[in-house]
Simulated assay, not measured.
Amino acid sequence: MIESFQRREKLIFDNHRGQTFEISVSSPFYLDKADGLGALENEFYNVKNYNEDGTNIKGSSVRERNIVIEGRIRLDKDINRQQMIRFFNPKHSFTLKYTNGDIVRYIDCKVEKTPVISRHIIPEFMISFLCPNPWWYTEEQKFEIAMWVPAFEFELEIDAEGDGIEMGYREPNNVVNVFNDSDTTSPLRIQFKAIGSVVEPYIEVVDTGRIVKIEATLQGGDIVTVNTKRGNEYAILERNGVEINYFNYLSYDSDIQLSVDVGDNLIRYDAAQFVSNLEVAIYFTPQFVGV
């Protein structure tokens, strides 16, 4: 439990309707305590054999996170009381943003218990939240593998030998190191972009051989985005401004929950034909134990 907050620490809720709600020591909704921002709880799967001391741990997983916030309404208690009750509607989903100077973390949550607000002269409140995914996360990061690099610049020089002007060149390396500087594995958002015809593009994790492959021929201008976040897996083709479900075009051996491990992850791209017409970008969101 955190019971002593600094002035620059803020808890800012977004209810996905464009509305925000701040709880902090500088807000009318004064922040006294917050439980559940830091520690995670591990859940073990044990097997106990007959006449054996202790148990055998066969596996473990991190439990969902509970966050309980306590504070006081300092100004306009009647108006702000209603504002708090209406904002933290249990039917809505929220993203909690924690800020402390340069440190910014996010977590998705639902209201577990709507605000309990006292009738005191300075009303006290308590709100309880459940975070099904217990990991805090930061802004999405982007790694480009196959891209064209611009080479046209001023002052313009034209080769007198008649070799022409280099407008750009193909990035020669088809492997990128996606470095995951976080506390756990992170899912990916993979974008295949065709600048011409491309047959069966894919990416592969070099160390493990796990792949995500599109078993189709892409046309120039096509963009296929594959998301491997658990509970939100999808493959979408964007063609001529229209989005098409492309999940059925993933190969049978594609890992739809492909993720990057903590540390270095060598990922390469390729295609069955016309790989020079392929651009690939990989996005992932770092995740952290606490704030």
Rank of each mutant, 00 (worst) to 15 (best):
S24R: 15
E52G: 00
T184L: 01
M147F: 00
F179Q: 09
N56V: 11
T217F: 00
P201E: 08
V176K: 15
E139K: 08
D181F: 07
N15Y: 02
H16R: 13
V226S: 08
V212G: 06
P123N: 07
K77Y: 03
A235L: 08
N232D: 13
V226K: 03
D53Q: 04
L11V: 00
K113I: 14
H120L: 13
D53S: 05
T208S: 14
F143R: 14
V242K: 12
W136Y: 02
C131F: 05
R239L: 04
A39K: 15
T285A: 09
I2F: 12
V25D: 09
Q83Y: 04
Q83N: 11
A216Q: 02
F29Y: 15
L250D: 05
W148C: 06
K113L: 13
W135P: 01
R81E: 03
V262R: 14
A160V: 08
T208F: 07
I145Y: 02
Q287C: 06
T95V: 11
Y50R: 04
E161S: 14
M167V: 03
I85W: 00
V275F: 04
Q141Y: 02
F284C: 10
V262F: 04
T55G: 00
I121Q: 13
R81Q: 06
I267G: 03
I236L: 09
V68I: 14
C109W: 05
V47T: 12
E112I: 04
E9R: 13
S251H: 04
H16C: 06
N42P: 08
N177P: 05
M1Q: 15
Y246N: 01
V224T: 08
R268G: 04
K48D: 03
F5V: 06
G71N: 12
Y283Q: 11
S4V: 14
I12P: 06
D264H: 14
N89S: 04
D163S: 11
S26F: 12
E204K: 15
Y50H: 02
D264A: 14
V226Q: 07
K33H: 11
E124H: 05
F179V: 06
I203A: 11
Y269G: 11
A194R: 05
N46K: 13
P187I: 07
Y45V: 08
E3L: 09
V212T: 08
N133C: 00
G101Y: 05
E171P: 00
W135S: 06
D264Y: 10
N180C: 09
D253C: 09
E157S: 14
P132F: 00
S60W: 03
D76W: 11
F247D: 15
F154Y: 12
Q273Y: 13
K193H: 04
Y246Q: 04
V149L: 14
P90K: 09
L96A: 01
P132R: 03
G221L: 01
S60I: 01
F247A: 14
K58F: 13
